[in-house]
Simulated assay, not measured.
Amino acid sequence: MLVINALLRGGIPFIIMGGIALLLNYQEKYSDAKSTFFASLIVFFVGAATVIYNIDHWSLTKQSVVHFLIMLITVYPILLLSGWFTIASVFDALKVFLVFVLVGVILWIVMFILAKVFSW
């Protein structure tokens, strides 16, 4: 059931955004199509990985670490290949990694607070 939930959570937005990317490509808006496609891949993996937080017998720490590792092996390479960042050296890839971690930490904190506020 976890796999099906992951595919639904990631797959539905991926199909919608992938369709938008195709439409943009047909309109010859190639740069927008490429960016939308890369964003759809990120949304797929982020959405699919949220099922980690439904594994009740795991601690929040374990859930968070596993989620981070999934994001590291999926989203981080997409960011490097997307063309959104100039990658001319290992230092550039490290800067992207720092942005990746910073955004991830901010989103984790925001989602944690929202979960606590709305968990009544």
Rank of each mutant, 00 (worst) to 15 (best):
L7D: 06
R9Q: 06
R9I: 14
R9A: 13
G10L: 04
G10P: 05
G11M: 02
M17L: 11
G18R: 05
G18M: 07
I20K: 03
L22F: 03
L23N: 08
N25E: 04
Y26E: 07
Q27N: 15
Q27F: 01
K29G: 04
S35A: 13
S35Y: 15
S40A: 11
S40N: 05
I42G: 01
F44E: 02
F45D: 01
V46P: 02
V46M: 03
A48E: 09
A49S: 11
A49I: 01
V51Y: 00
V51H: 05
I55E: 07
D56K: 01
D56F: 15
S59R: 10
K62H: 09
Q63P: 04
H67E: 02
H67D: 04
H67A: 10
F68V: 03
L72M: 06
L72E: 15
T74P: 09
T74A: 03
I78G: 11
L80H: 08
L81G: 10
L81S: 08
S82A: 07
S82I: 12
S82V: 14
W84K: 12
T86Q: 15
T86W: 12
S89L: 03
V90I: 13
F91E: 13
D92P: 08
A93Y: 15
K95D: 01
F97P: 06
L98Y: 13
L98S: 11
L102F: 09
V103F: 03
G104E: 13
L107P: 05
L107D: 00
I109K: 05
I109R: 03
V110H: 07
F112C: 09
F112Q: 11
I113N: 07
L114V: 13
V117T: 12
F118I: 05
F118K: 14
W120F: 13
W120P: 09
